[in-house]
Structure formats: structure tokens, C-alpha cells
Simulated scan of single mutants.
Amino acid sequence: MNLIKTYFTRQLEKRGYPTDDICYSLNYCQGDGMAWYGDIEEEALISFADKLMKDTEKAAVKRAINKGATVTIERNSYATHYSHYNTMSVIAEACYGEELTDFEWASFQSFEQALEEDVKATSQSLESNGYAIIDAGSKYGALADKKRTFNTARFSLIIEESEDKDFSVQHWDESLIDDTVQACIDKKLRYFTLRVSVIEREDETVLGESYLGGCTESNDSPSKNYDGHLRQMVSEAIREARDFVNSISLAA
């Protein structure tokens, strides 16, 4: 699970929304956004009632829930091509067992509308934060100027922070995941694959490379040696380049 999907899942779980069917597209295109679908569990509905309703309506909604009334987030007609705050429809249904009173059903319908507003607001908030997370690992965002080049007469040594398409926090501690994601959203942290390469300047042939994925660096106090990994990576790239050049020389 990638960083954005992990973030969306954790945030929806904290709010009480279903997480088995999360869809998103964040490419700065029309119709982009994020959405999720599924049944809201009874315990979560009670929590939403406490959060969104007041006084007698709150009590009526809780009675309706206890009688078996349900809420489901379903795809609407816009979801055929898109995934965003307006592709979700919140559907409230009365129970098939104990009948609701008129006031309980009216209150539950008001609850449905309040949930619809919360769903849309949550989607828009997560979408905005999702873009911030993407930017923290994008060559067009936080990584735009993270490239250093050292030249000799014939060769160039390039140290570059490149996009890490497989960046994963799957086995991280939960608190570390939350802190890392929030730092990305706050533009305090970037994530990347560190790449060191040796190229021939004349035709830009790559002679040697070394990679290290899953890297993070603070934007407040960026490191130049990447926690001590850079020296070894430079040595590996140069050694590989020398071996390549020597093999060409022997072949000639």
C-alpha cells in the first residue's frame, strides 16, 4: 500500500468511514479527487450522531440506529468516470424489523443530510492533503532542485533525489507513519529514491549507478550526506563505472 492510500485509509478509519473501497485520482485534472464506498458500521453511526446531531434529534437518530436503520455510501452516476467528493451518495434506509416513528425517520433523514455534508468535506480535505503528499515526493515539487553534478574532463558524477514510486510505510510504527505524513503535508519533509550515477559527458552514457529507496529528509535542515549513506553509494557507482570502462577497454 503506497503512502497516499495508507494515509486515506488511516484517516477514514479514525473518522469511522468504511475503507474497503477507496478510489482516487490526483493528477491535477478535471474530475480528480478521492472517494470511498461501503456501509457505515453501527458503532460508527452512533459516534457520527453524537458529532453531527443535537438534542431530541440526536436521541431519535440513536433509537433509529438501535432499531436497525442503516447508512451506506454508494456510487452515483458521476462515479462512472470520476472519483471525488461528488461521486458519493449517502443512502439512509429504515430497518426491516421494528418500525420507526415519524419523528425518528425524519431525524434519520436529517442525519443522512448531515453525513452527506461531512462526507463531502472529508473528501475535499483528504484530496487537498493527498496533493500535498504527492508534492513532497515529486520532481515538480519538493524534489525539483535536488540534484548535484560534479564534472571532470570526461565524466560527471550526479547525486539526485528522484521520485520513489514504490515508497511504502507498510512495516512502520503507526505513530511514525502519522508523523511522516503530517510532515509531508506541512511541507517539512520530502521522500525519494537517492540515486548516484557516473555518466560519460560526451554522449551521456551511464557507466555506473547506485540506488537507495525509501529515503526521507527534512526540508528545515537538509542533510548533504544522507545519514552517512552517500559516501558508500558514490564508491559503488564509481567502482561500477570503472569496471564498465575496463571491460570496454579489454573488449577493444
Rank of each mutant, 00 (worst) to 15 (best):
I4C: 03
F8Q: 04
L12C: 01
L12G: 06
R15F: 00
P18A: 08
T19D: 09
D20N: 13
D21W: 01
Y24A: 05
W36Y: 06
Y37Q: 03
G38A: 09
G38D: 00
I40L: 02
E43C: 00
I46N: 00
D50E: 13
L52A: 01
L52H: 01
K58Q: 08
N66C: 07
N66A: 12
T70I: 00
T70M: 01
T70K: 02
S77D: 14
T80G: 14
Y85S: 15
N86E: 14
T87C: 04
S89H: 06
V90S: 09
I91P: 09
C95G: 15
E98L: 12
L100N: 00
F103K: 10
F103A: 13
E104P: 05
F108N: 04
F111W: 09
Q113P: 04
D118Q: 09
A121W: 03
E127H: 06
S128A: 15
S128C: 03
G130A: 06
A144R: 12
A144Y: 09
K147R: 15
R148G: 03
T152A: 09
F155W: 06
F155Q: 10
S162M: 13
V169S: 04
D173E: 11
S175V: 04
D178G: 04
V181A: 04
V181P: 02
D186N: 08
R190A: 05
R195Y: 07
D203H: 13
D203Q: 13
T205I: 11
V206T: 05
V206I: 10
E209D: 07
S210L: 10
G213I: 07
C215M: 13
C215K: 11
T216S: 04
T216E: 08
E217M: 14
E217N: 14
S218K: 10
S218N: 02
D220Y: 01
D220T: 10
D220N: 10
N225S: 10
N225D: 15
D227G: 11
Q232K: 15
Q232Y: 14
M233A: 05
M233S: 04
A237P: 11
D243Y: 06
A251S: 15
A252H: 12
